[in-house]
Design a binder for these strands. Structure first.
Lengths: 336, 336
DNA sequence: TTGCGAAATGACAACGTTGTCATTTCGTTA
DNA sequence: TAACGAAATGACAACGTTGTCATTTCGCAA
């Protein structure tokens, strides 16, 4: 059994073994049709025998590109999985791999810092997944030769952005309530610093104000069911409360449980809508109507945006991915 | 305002601008102490002025390593987020970035295929996150120069593996039931093809058999609450059923809801334990005792294992990360 | 057989960095 | 001031590819 002493087998080794020139080996890999079949076979055999694998670094150095897109996760939460899934699938489809770095827990990473770190890595463009505000958001300028797309609900002065239409989703839910005859809508928010929560609240407020309704004081939650339950206990005592929009499904469930514990029925006494449409996974026969965002689609769009902008990194666009209202039976029709 | 025409600024450009040699610029970056302070400042100024960023490809080519670890996600599910989080944090800490690829939906990817694709990318080692069986699991041989760690509950003949101790976790839960005076434990499984589900079932079976108890027929679920509910309806009719182990929290919740709908109380009539400890996020005042796996820790261990093996890729180890029983009140003590 | 255009192959430089070794400069002491 | 060793700097090759352009080989018609 022949053991291989050399650490890495190069094209040159293959060339010698196959009795051809270095360049011919290169051609076998990159433009096989330009090589005679007999030669090609000999080269393939040599590659096989030696266990040749093309060197990424040398190739990238020569080509001036990597075939990788950088992904910076400022925040890695549950919904992120579907988004990464979308990014990865779209990348795969277009022949790119992903290079990922993450903000460390506790660390405070700015966009500039993220860009600096990414630009030391093998990437042709990058995606920032940003769910909270950062200090240098407005002043940040992306490297001129590295297409940068930010996933965030906020508009950025120079970079392309992609986002769920959180505000629109919240508006949609509110209008759904109002269209079903409700005169007002209460709101239970998520964590204060979350941009999602802020946008959802903004949409809720806008929808009410558009119909000349004074939005009631929102209730502060923290995304978890217990905070929703606490909010529900408060809401149960408000006689004018017929509709509650909770910033996610978990809190919506908490609200519903509290209402029931107070002897109120959902939807007969109070209607509820949540966000993210995930309660059905945990609750059998779930009745909760919910606004669902297409995170996977979001990831796909973000990646496509980067790839489309590789040639013109300074181009700028804004993409909104709309939400979908998944209707179940937690909203009562008060009309007629 | 001076515009830069050259696409990429190289060390040579910096060197000329600073009036030093190429090598001195290199030294400023890699061994700053060996450069006189005045020179260093001049070089830094030139780098700043020209917007120099070191070329990853050239550097890697020379060094023969990338500082990146490849991650192959055969499956990207909810629990994966924490794992990726752990991998990414540990990587960061040790100065590595991650290069990620994913199995496409529908595609059937073998280990060999994954290894082939990864070895074309900038990686020094790789992690396979494998949650289902693949055809070539037993026959797969990792590239000799690329340390490979597989995250999987199965043992592999040549590669290092890292896993949650799913079997041990299930055993722990069963013994907890038995130690509390229960005479038997029913089991609701997850999807058939899931290795997690299989291992949890195996642990449950082993724990019962170790005490000379004949395991009852397991009930087939699909991870979602509705399947747990269906299982609960069946179990409610079994008079000897005092303890149910469900392969995840969602199904456990389904079981509990069904039992209640059948007029039975948890835990007074039937005790229940789940897996993953996530029900509290969705259910206020959740009482479900649950086996929790430390996915983040798992990711950290996997990454450390890769890094530790970079110098000796053919080394082999097996790491098990134990689970934790999070006690709430869904298990009744039947002893005297 | 010869000549010809096209196809196949090869020689060599270049990508931007770091390692090796030689050279220059510096600070110190005689 | 000269001489010395140490510190600082530089020249040049090398890493493993691909692009450019030159050369060889091939198939075919005269």
């Amino acid at each position: 059994m022949a053991t291989m002493d050399k650490k890495n087998v190069s094209m040159n080794d293959v060339a010698i073994a196959a009795g051809v020139s270095l360049k011919t080996v290169s051609r076998v890999i990159n433009e096989p049709d330009s090589v005679r079949e007999s030669t090609r076979d000999r080269v393939h055999a040599a590659m096989e025998a030696l266990g040749f694998r093309a060197n990424f670094a040398a190739r990238s150095l020569k080509l001036g590109r990597y075939g990788c897109i950088g992904v910076v996760m400022f925040h890695l939460s549950g919904g992120a999985v579907d988004m990464i899934d979308g990014i990865a699938d779209a990348a795969e489809e277009r022949g790119f791999a992903l290079t990922m770095i993450k903000k460390r827990a506790g660390e405070k990473m700015t966009l500039a810092e993220a860009a600096r770190r990414m630009s030391q890595l093998p990437v042709d463009g990058m995606i920032f997944n940003l769910r909270q505000m950062v200090d240098d958001f407005d002043t940040f300028e992306a490297p001129k030769d590295l297409k940068t797309v930010i996933i965030t609900p906020m508009e950025h002065p120079t970079c392309s952005t992609v986002s769920d239409d959180q505000e629109g989703g919240a508006r949609m839910a509110c209008e759904y309530f109002l269209d079903h005859g409700h005169k007002n809508v209460y709101f239970v928010s998520g964590k204060k610093e979350s941009l999602s929560s802020q946008c959802r609240m903004k949409g809720w407020r806008a929808a009410l104000e558009a119909r000349g309704i004074e939005p009631p004081e929102p209730l502060q939650g923290d995304w978890n069911a217990d905070s929703g339950y606490a909010a529900g206990l408060v809401l149960a005592d408000k006689p004018d409360c017929t509709a509650v929009l909770a910033a996610n499904d978990c809190m919506a469930n908490g609200v519903m449980m509290a209402l029931r514990d107070k002897g109120l029925s959902v939807p007969d006494d109070v209607s509820v809508i949540g966000f993210d449409d995930e309660l059905y996974k945990t609750i059998p026969n779930s009745i909760l109507t919910s606004v669902k965002f297409r995170h996977r689609e979001l990831g796909i769009r973000a990646l496509n945006e980067v790839v489309a902008g590789l040639e013109a990194p300074s181009s700028r666009s804004r993409t909104l991915v709309s939400g979908v209202l998944v209707e179940r039976s937690s909203v009562k029709d008060l009309r007629a």
